[in-house]
Amino acid sequence: MCVGVPAKIIELEEERALVDVLGSKMYVGIIFVPNVMIGDFVLLHAGQAMSIIEESFAEESLKEWRDILNAAD
C-alpha cells in the first residue's frame, strides 16, 4: 500500500531532518514525529517520517515469535 523504509535521523533542523538509509541520505519532513531525536530510526514514506521506530519493541516481538516457533517444535 505504501512504501515505508526505516531511516536513521542524523541531522535535525526545525522542520526537517537528514536521514540515512543504508548510506543513502535525504532530507525528510518530521512534522508527524514531533519528538524525534538524532539517532532515532523513523519509518519514511514519500519524504515524511511517519513514525518513530521502537527498536526495543522489534526485539521483543521477535523474541515472542521465536518462543512461539520453539513451542511449535
Binding site: 531511516a7 538509509v21 543504508l22 548510506g23 543513502s24
Partner: peptide
C-alpha cells in the same frame, strides 16, 4: 549491491 544503492532503492521503490 552497494549498501547505499540498496538504501536508495528502498527509499524510492
Amino acid at each position: 549491491i552497494r549498501r547505499e544503492v540498496t538504501g536508495a532503492c528502498n527509499i524510492l521503490g
